[in-house]
């Protein structure tokens, strides 16, 4: 019997359908969240169902997660993205000891046990410093989408970006560009500043084992290289890293 996990984040809604017994992924889907988290969750789930060729009604259990978890009327249960990312990451990479996740409005470092249970976690402060929002700001200024940013950053020499605050960073970036800094250097600088922010966050928890990087930013190769180099270790990245939370939710649904 199939089960589902739906993760409604601030940027995208993700759904994963699992075979309850074998835990095999039958399908996954991702749609932009937009202004209506409930509808986005609904759409992601319907799309995943049709890709898997299963009826919505045949899902034995649905677990919701992400900031929109409370807006999902169809979910049997809601669990935080901390717990879900931990479970998802350990399922994909069993030797994971630390999960790093950069989301649209928060980022987190999670210490996990071998069974995927959370031992400790820290999240960014109240402001958007060190979150995906940081890259959206940059993308707006440079007029590049996130993929293009990644390609630019790959060949840039990191400019010094000191601001951690998304709003002040914008001022700083505009200043750098006015001084003639190259967009690729600015992009590389923002990547490094974001990666360093994640490193200091992760040092606030006791880290051991492998490090698994989840969330949408993990699908940017230049950013992953930057994060690994700042951390000083290689990081595990799944094929669809942004689905890790939904996968964790589906694993809970399959219990």
């Amino acid at each position: 019997m199939p089960v589902a996990g739906v993760d409604v984040g601030s940027v995208a809604a993700k759904a994963v359908i699992l075979n309850e017994r074998t835990k095999a992924v039958l399908a996954h889907a991702l749609v932009p969240t937009g202004w209506n988290p409930r509808q986005a969750g609904e759409d992601a789930l319907n799309r995943a169902c049709s890709l898997a060729g299963v009826e919505r009604a045949s899902l034995t259990r649905i677990v919701g997660t992400g900031y929109g978890r409370i807006a999902l009327p169809f979910a049997d249960k809601s669990v935080t993205e901390i717990t879900c990312h931990a479970l998802g990451a350990v399922h994909l990479f069993p030797r994971t000891g630390v999960v790093l996740d950069i989301g649209g409005q928060d980022s987190k470092a999670i210490a996990v046990d071998a069974d995927g249970s959370v031992q400790d976690f820290v999240m960014n402060d109240k402001c958007a410093a060190g979150t995906g929002r940081f890259l959206q700001v940059l993308s707006g200024i440079l007029g590049m989408d996130v993929r293009a940013l990644d390609e630019a950053a790959a060949c840039g020499k990191p400019a010094e970006i000191s601001s951690m605050c998304a709003v002040f960073a914008e001022t700083e970036i505009v200043g750098l560009l006015a001084q003639g800094a190259k967009p690729e250097d600015v992009a590389a600088g923002v990547f490094r500043s974001l990666a360093r922010r994640m490193v200091s966050l992760s040092r606030r928890i006791a880290c051991r084992g492998e490090c698994t990087f989840t969330g949408g930013l993990a699908s940017l190769p230049a950013f992953v290289r930057c994060l690994s180099s700042e951390l000083g270790v290689a990081v595990n990245v799944a094929e669809q890293p942004q689905n890790t939370g939904a996968l964790g939710a589906a694993l809970i649904a399959a219990r």
């Binding site: 900031y67 669990v79 935080t80 901390i82 717990t83 928060d106 959370v118």
Partner: peptide, 13 residues
């Protein structure tokens, strides 16, 4: 809402 995630995740732990 942000604090709620922390509190809920902590209690889930």
């Amino acid at each position: 809402e942000q604090l709620k995630v922390r509190a809920e995740a902590f209690l889930e732990m």
